[in-house]
């Protein structure tokens, strides 16, 4: 189905593609951590591929499956031009869980990467605001890791700042904006 996508990637990355599967037209490619950023840039910028839409960034913990490396970060890309999808996976070891950020490629990955960090503890190098997004400030550990006890809770005593990613100037601009025609 997506032969030209795979051919294009083979031409560019050759043996760097660690594993490829195309089950039922569901194209998945594995690539090393050191070249994943290059691959994402290529997927977006290459005129033939044109994967303009990063639908999701998530992660998998292969602990109970004995995966080595333990984690994988998964990018789901979609092209509005060709209607093709691709899934890019990269392995991430437990003792050094860092991947290059993709915020410079798709701005939308900002919150996805924060979610991956929050849930799996995988950090994204170069991310502008690498902090938790769903769990609160006093939460410890990463809830979707397989070795996290499912009902272990951390209490929050003071309200967490929910709008801290908005800069002060931006906040002032929002406040100053007239929100209702009557108050004009």
């Amino acid at each position: 189905m997506a032969e030209f996508v795979l051919e294009n990637l083979r031409r560019r990355f050759g043996d760097a593609l660690q594993r490829v599967s195309d089950d039922h037209g569901d194209l998945t490619v594995w690539i090393g951590r050191d070249r994943v950023h290059e691959m994402l840039v290529h997927c977006k910028r290459d005129p033939e591929l044109d994967f303009c839409f990063c639908m999701d960034v998530t992660a998998v913990d292969y602990l109970s499956l004995g995966g080595d490396p333990r984690f994988a970060v998964v990018y789901h890309l979609y092209s509005l031009k060709t209607g093709k999808r691709i899934r890019v996976k990269t392995g991430v070891p437990e003792d050094d869980p860092v991947v290059d950020t993709a915020v410079d490629v798709w701005k939308a990955t900002d919150w996805f990467e924060r979610e991956v960090y929050d849930m799996f503890g995988i950090r994204f190098e170069g991310h502008p605001n690498m902090k938790r997004i769903l769990c609160h400030r006093d939460f410890q550990g990463h809830a979707l890791r397989k070795d996290y006890p499912a009902d272990l809770r951390w209490k929050l005593l003071r309200p967490d700042d929910l709008l801290d990613e908005i800069s002060t100037e931006e906040m002032q601009r929002i406040r100053a904006r007239v929100s209702h025609p009557i108050s004009e």
Partner: peptide, 10 residues
């Protein structure tokens, strides 16, 4: 959720 708890209390 726990994140909402202090807001509820307030």
């Amino acid at each position: 959720v726990d994140k909402q708890a202090p807001i509820l209390k307030l």
